[in-house]
Design a protein around this nucleic acid. Structure first.
Lengths: 214, 214
DNA sequence: GTCTATACACCGATAGAC
DNA sequence: GTCTATCGGTGTATAGAC
């Protein structure tokens, strides 16, 4: 290898590691396999990383931005409230159906985080961010449509996160896309039922200042 | 060791393996560790099992009866419909809070099942049984209270399974029992909203023959 | 059958030539 | 810095003495 900056090597190894993870899982992501994927000798691994665990930790920390950028759910304006919620849920779900291995790896890393103290923190950060992201979407929907939710948004968000997480896990095992989509549709209906109408003027004001009416 | 029947040895090893799994996870459940836990020399492992994988497969197949016997949810008769549903959900949830490691191991085995063809089948059986078990509970509730659900029971069941699975996973990471219980309560309310009243005579008949009115 | 000793493979990490 | 060769450790599985 004709001389590469350490930072660039790091990036190459992280990319290679991600590809190996998708193909062979956490257990198969050995330093040897990663270096082979990157076209480097195994010994060069420790130029950039003190240990395999350091790479995995950095990779675990990268999961969140990766997911957030992918699931920047577009809140569509047209249609009924149910449709709006449903489309937001589908925006996530289509990622699951199109890239199941990605989510499989995420579960593997999550499971590993529960045993490996070094990975505990990224996992906690990630699972704290999920409900916040969903809360943001729910509040945006409420603002756009001039409604309020009749249940604390963080409770609604936690329900949604749990349901999506559970559906994803089940889908990885049974690959039953129809069943999952039926549950998704039903979930959208349930959420839409928690609309509480507010007076039109208040709704207008809500949209204007971006906050949500009580 | 003073001579033990092969079948008994098998049982001893399976028990020991389960204890090791709870303490050190799938990755830590090596044949050495399992035999040490069972008080046997490592070499004796292969008296009863051709391979470590065979033991894990058998153990994975044992998960379902273990869970079913534990979560034989008692459908309580008193109180409102919301309370009845809520208590059924809590019957499961209290197992999660009291024995989180058990569920952690189940997730690890599930994750492993997605990479190891030998374990794929037990996982599929298990995840097919979950919705069926919940369907049974929902139908029992409907029968006992003389109501019907206004949404296909299998869709409702799939929602419940996904939510419980997701909440469990999240709880393992953030240990936020309050948040989980709030979501659980909310879920009970949402399900109870799907009651559709039927005439009293029909309800009586429904209870008698054990089926559910359309 | 039971146990000890060991074979064989693979892992992460490092030493040392260039 | 780069790479090869190898160390020390651990894993599963097995061979062979008793």
């Amino acid at each position: 290898m004709p001389r590469i900056a350490a930072a660039e090597r790091r990036a190459l190894l992280l990319d290679a590691a991600w590809r190996v993870l998708l193909d062979h899982g956490v257990a198969g992501a050995t330093t040897r396999a990663i270096c082979a994927e990157a076209g480097m000798p195994q010994g060069s691994f420790h130029y950039c990383f003190d240990s395999r665990n350091e790479l995995l930790t950095e990779l675990a920390a990268d999961l969140l931005p990766r997911e957030l950028s992918a699931a920047a759910a577009a809140v569509v304006r047209g249609g009924s409230l149910v449709d709006t919620v449903h489309r937001a849920l589908l925006a996530y779900w289509e990622l699951v159906e199109s890239e199941p291995q990605v989510h499989q790896v995420v579960y593997e890393i999550t499971a590993m985080s529960l045993r490996e103290p070094a990975l505990a923190d990224p996992a906690k950060v990630r699972y704290a961010a999920y409900p916040l992201a969903v809360t943001g979407v729910l509040e945006e929907i409420a603002a756009v449509r001039g409604i309020a939710w009749d249940r604390p948004v963080d409770v609604l968000a936690r329900q949604v996160v749990a349901l999506l997480d559970g559906l994803t896990l089940q889908f990885l095992i049974d690959a039953d896309a129809e069943g999952a989509r039926a549950a998704l549709r039903a979930c959208a209906e349930d959420i839409a039922r928690h609309r509480r109408r507010v007076r039109y003027a208040a709704a207008r004001a809500t949209v204007r200042d971006g906050s949500v009416a009580p």
